[in-house]
């Protein structure tokens, strides 16, 4: 019975994911074609006006724009299902290859940002919650508010110009070094963008921590533990933080999923060759295959991260575990 139920929910969840991804595919396909211009005019600009009809036809067939839309759509989707994400006509690189390079970069950036966000956000939230309405709460709340309110592009721009112009320090002016090649340079290049993103993430994490800690603290078992004389520090780390973990994990999962496609601005300002920039460039150049496949990859990653968050949620939530 239980097994059947479990099986049922897995199938349901799976179907739901497939339907969602198909919807994303349809949506991105239509939207790209609704944006004015195509790859011919994106490449040639106004010079495209000088093309003869035969030249235009030759270009349309070169870029595959001469086929009916349905053929284009299912042709692309069919290829994607067999693992062929298409080719960038700009660099002759396969989109799969491009993604293999850009996705890990964004994932690394997202992980570093989340870590920084947690490192800043969790202690700050606990500090705030330890004594509500006190000066230390005010400090925590102010930092949180700043994180929520300072736009990433502003912080990024300000940091970059100050560091480069005043101190001449600009690791991002060098060619991007993947972590597999040069760990030290890679970390220097990732430091500023991760800080900018992490600072933004720290705010919701800080607030979630604060609320969760306050909530948990008022619960019976904590009161009991306190009455029993469990030391305050141990109480915090073991009991309170342990129980506040659930909302924090949920929040972190949400933020991680968001970062996969949401780091575009920061990637651009710091010249980080991540997946957001890959989509951006694709949109600018009207490289339909690149944008479609990359957006789909981001959507898959997003859906998987959500699934993982749910699973993790089940694993760590004592209430779910108990039942």
């Amino acid at each position: 019975m239980v097994r059947q139920l479990l099986h049922h929910s897995v199938v349901r969840r799976g179907t739901q994911m497939v339907v969602t991804l198909f919807g994303v595919a349809v949506f991105v396909f239509i939207m790209l074609r609704a944006i004015p211009g195509n790859q011919i005019t994106a490449g040639l600009g106004t010079e495209a006006a000088a093309l003869t009809p035969a030249q235009r036809a030759a270009l349309e067939s070169y870029y595959g724009l001469d086929k009916p839309l349905l053929t284009q759509f299912f042709g692309w989707l069919g290829n994607v299902c067999t693992g062929n994400l298409g080719v960038s006509s700009r660099s002759q690189q396969s989109v799969l290859d491009m993604t293999m390079h850009s996705l890990p970069v964004t994932i690394e950036l997202a992980i570093l940002s989340i870590v920084l966000g947690l490192v800043i956000g969790v202690p700050l939230g606990m500090l705030s919650a330890s004594k509500p309405e006190s000066p230390r709460d005010a400090i925590g709340q102010t930092v949180g508010l700043a994180g929520l309110s300072i736009p990433a592009f502003l912080l990024a721009t300000a940091l970059l110009s100050v560091l480069a112009q005043v101190w001449g320090y600009n690791p991002n002016g060098r060619v991007f070094a993947p972590i597999t090649q040069d760990v030290l340079l890679n970390l220097q290049q990732m430091m500023l963008p991760a800080f900018v993103l992490g600072f933004g993430i720290a705010a919701p994490i800080m607030r979630t921590t604060r609320t969760a800690v306050l909530d948990v603290r008022s619960e019976d078992f904590v009161r009991t533990a306190r009455a029993k004389g469990v030391p305050v520090r141990r109480l915090y780390v073991r009991h309170i933080l342990g129980n506040a973990l659930v909302p924090i994990v949920t929040m972190t999962g949400l933020q991680f999923g968001y970062l996969l496609g949401g780091a575009v601005v920061v990637e651009q300002v710091f010249s980080i060759p991540g997946i957001g920039r890959q989509v951006l460039l694709g949109i600018q150049q009207k490289e339909y295959a690149v944008v479609q496949s990359t957006v789909l990859v981001i959507a898959v990653a997003f859906v998987l991260v959500n699934l993982l968050t749910d699973v993790l949620y089940r694993v760590i939530d004592p209430r779910v575990r108990a039942s």
Binding site: Q16, L21, G23, Y258, G261, V264, G276, V279, F302
Partner: peptide, 11 residues
């Protein structure tokens, strides 16, 4: 809603 959520918001 799921579709819109899975689409990177800024993009």
């Amino acid at each position: 809603t799921n579709i819109l959520f899975a689409f990177p918001p800024l993009l």
